[in-house]
């Protein structure tokens, strides 16, 4: 039964494009991710969350039902980072940036407007991600001293273990704007800005009264698309 269902599922995907296909595009893009977290620092003073830098790479796959309406999916790796700063009496105790990288599958509806060799598109959809690695860096005022009896600030950048407190899955909404320029036939370059709004927290729910953090990202990327198939 399961085998039959799987076969039907695969066939439907294979047949759908041939029934409705106008065109396909596949490409590669890479860019910069500015991410922050929606979070509360509670009643703590001199504690704040801030945005931090990351990167994103992806292999977008687009399928256009019509000339200006399509679906986009693919595979992307997005590093979503944030900064945590805590000071005491004006002295920085912790200035830490954590980077959570997710392997994601987006799915988006795309609406395009074509003007000669340019096209502009708007996309709206969502994504599902899997946490693949974590890193952390920054400065940490340790409670150690040197021989002049001064505190030691340790600067570091390190891999961070994924543990049971981490939420391995992430899901969110994406909205994007992109502009494309056809450099030669079937090959376009594009610039894309995207906003991702996660509605799953960075942490697993492991306690009552938990302070959750949600990723909010702005992604700016450049890429190339190769178009094929359909009635081009």
């Amino acid at each position: 039964m399961l085998r039959k269902f799987s076969l039907l599922f695969i066939l439907s995907f294979a047949l759908l494009p041939s029934l409705f296909a106008d065109s396909w595009a596949v490409g590669f893009n890479a860019g910069y991710v500015l991410n922050g977290v929606k979070a509360s620092s509670g009643y703590r003073e001199e504690t704040s969350y801030d945005v931090f830098h990351g990167y994103g790479v992806s292999i977008p796959i687009q399928y256009y039902f019509t000339e200006d309406l399509g679906l986009e999916t693919g595979l992307r790796l997005t590093e979503r980072s944030y900064r945590y700063v805590h000071s005491f009496d004006g002295e920085t105790i912790l200035d830490i940036h954590e980077h959570n990288a997710y392997l994601e599958i987006p799915i988006m509806m795309i609406k395009s407007w074509n003007v000669n060799r340019f096209s502009f598109s708007f996309g709206l959809g969502g994504y599902l991600g899997l946490l693949v690695y974590k890193t952390e860096g920054g400065s940490f005022l340790t409670l150690s001293f040197n021989q002049d009896l001064d505190f030691i600030t340790e600067r570091y950048y390190t891999w961070k273990d994924i543990d049971t407190s981490d939420n391995l899955f992430e899901a969110g909404l994406s909205v994007k704007l992109s502009s494309t320029f056809e450099i030669v036939e079937d090959i376009d370059i594009f610039f894309e800005t995207r906003g991702d709004f996660s509605f799953t927290p960075i942490e697993r729910e492991y306690q009552e009264n938990q302070s959750f953090r949600y990723n909010l990202s702005a992604v700016f990327s450049l890429g190339v698309l190769y178009s094929f198939g359909g009635n081009q």
Binding site: A39, S40, S41, G42, R44, Y84, L94, I96, E98, E136, F140, T142, S144, E154, Y156, T158, K160, D163, T164, S165, E203, Y206, Q207, Q210, S211, F212, R213
Partner: peptide, 15 residues
């Protein structure tokens, strides 16, 4: 590194 019980920084080496 936050108010939740298991919010920790990475382990920092002490020399």
């Amino acid at each position: 590194m936050g108010d939740s019980r298991l919010d920790y920084t990475s382990w920092i080496p002490i020399r």
